[in-house]
Amino acid sequence: MPWMIYGANGYTGNLIAREAAKRGLKPVLAGRNETALQALSNELNLPYRTFGLDEPEALLAGLDNIDLVLHCAGPFSVTAEPMMLACLEKRAHYLDITGEISVFELAQSLSAKAKKQKVVLCPGVGFDVIPTDCVAARLHEQMPDAITLALGFDSRSGLSAGTAKTTVEAMKNGGQIRSDGVIQRVPLGYKTREINYGNGTKFSVTIPWGDVSTAFHSTGIRNIEVYIPSSPKSVRMMKMANLAKPLLGLSVVQGVMKKQAAKVEGPTEAARAKMPAFVWGEVTNPEGKKLVARLRTINGYSLTVLGSLAIASYILMEKSIPGGAYTPSKLMGSDFVERLDGCGKIQLFEN
């Protein structure tokens, strides 16, 4: 079945395209940069198409005879909606590698239409958010009466230009958590705590990560926070940034910061091999009982390559999957991350 990697010339899209070619898969490479795509197409002996997302007719034509799109061109807060809507119109399954809350919520809002069109919408088929989503689902399986969920990860994967741009895009929105079932905006640096991710206890701070959306749809738990390791100095800087938040949303400021972000180069293969990630989760039930989960995975970018290709292959082979919006664990099971090469088992501890 014909499928496409859109944004194949970007850092992560390129990694996925190369692994797909190595496996003998034949995705169509796509994006806006014809020079880069043609060079990659020639090297990998794969077909390519050039089109942007800001011209609806060209976008729809670009998806002709495509059964699945793996969307890798961020910032997804800008690019996901036109691609998702085009996929629904063309009845092509949609995957992406986002970690952005707004994109997950968009997919859920389109679930009924996706069911009608028999289209699978599953954003977040990379490190954002496969491992944390699987940890959330496993914790809920073991404590179905949980009322609070905290998740976190210690990933020293480095940044690609796309990830750096996404970070810049998100800064203007501040922090986000889920409280009593509703996504709430909170200040940057909203809450801190000490967390042992599996590699020692670290001072940590809340961030507006995709699990604020996805973990709710995977588990139904109504109170969710996500953490990463930080330092007291960094948290103080976050809190100072709250004062400048109106400025961070100005197009000229965003433009300058994104220009700098575009200069970032992602980690090399050798660097990725030396940078595992550690994932943590904690649930609490009404009686105050706690359950903790820990997981060690491969580098975040490497996990994105394996996870996205595994989900794309599954959807293309399993033609009977009902249409609708999915999270990775809802589509693949809470053990999905454990089945990816190089990733460990989810370990559970009563606390």
Rank of each mutant, 00 (worst) to 15 (best):
266 G>M: 06
196 N>L: 15
121 L>A: 05
115 K>D: 05
149 L>H: 01
321 I>H: 00
25 L>K: 11
200 G>C: 10
47 P>L: 11
3 W>F: 13
63 L>K: 02
19 E>V: 13
200 G>D: 08
249 G>W: 06
265 E>N: 12
170 A>H: 08
330 K>W: 09
123 P>S: 10
315 I>T: 01
133 D>I: 07
7 G>E: 07
36 A>E: 06
185 R>H: 11
121 L>N: 00
84 M>G: 02
338 E>G: 02
39 A>F: 06
144 P>Y: 11
52 G>L: 12
179 S>A: 11
35 T>S: 12
295 L>K: 00
12 T>N: 11
82 P>A: 13
186 V>T: 07
330 K>R: 13
53 L>I: 14
172 K>P: 07
201 T>N: 10
98 T>A: 13
54 D>T: 10
291 L>D: 00
333 G>I: 09
167 T>D: 07
221 I>G: 01
189 G>E: 03
337 V>H: 00
216 F>D: 00
159 L>E: 09
293 A>E: 00
74 G>W: 06
228 I>N: 08
203 F>Q: 05
296 R>Y: 05
253 V>G: 03
162 G>N: 07
101 I>Q: 02
140 H>T: 09
108 Q>P: 08
290 K>S: 04
221 I>M: 10
157 S>D: 10
209 W>I: 11
169 E>G: 04
342 G>H: 06
19 E>T: 13
82 P>K: 09
85 L>H: 09
155 S>R: 14
131 P>W: 06
148 T>G: 12
271 A>H: 10
108 Q>L: 15
227 Y>D: 00
264 V>H: 01
6 Y>C: 11
28 V>W: 03
108 Q>C: 11
105 E>C: 14
102 S>W: 03
288 G>D: 06
124 G>S: 13
156 R>F: 05
65 N>I: 12
65 N>V: 12
291 L>S: 01
20 A>H: 09
338 E>H: 05
24 G>N: 10
148 T>D: 13
130 I>A: 03
23 R>Q: 15
294 R>P: 02
239 K>H: 05
31 G>N: 06
277 A>K: 01
219 T>N: 07
115 K>R: 14
11 Y>I: 14
212 V>A: 04
152 G>C: 08
231 S>Y: 02
124 G>P: 01
132 T>Q: 12
270 A>Q: 15
269 E>F: 15
36 A>H: 08
291 L>T: 01
88 L>G: 04
29 L>Q: 11
283 V>M: 02
291 L>Q: 00
58 A>S: 09
218 S>K: 06
208 P>N: 05
305 V>L: 04
53 L>Q: 05
51 F>C: 12
133 D>A: 09
82 P>I: 15
325 A>M: 04
122 C>L: 12
344 G>V: 07
114 A>M: 07
227 Y>L: 08
22 K>V: 14
33 N>M: 15
209 W>S: 00
250 L>A: 06
318 E>V: 09
57 E>Q: 10
260 Q>P: 05
205 V>C: 12
284 T>I: 15
347 Q>N: 04
187 P>H: 04
316 L>D: 00
168 V>P: 01
191 K>T: 12
291 L>I: 02
296 R>G: 06
341 D>Y: 09
333 G>D: 00
236 R>F: 14
325 A>Q: 01
68 L>C: 08
344 G>A: 05
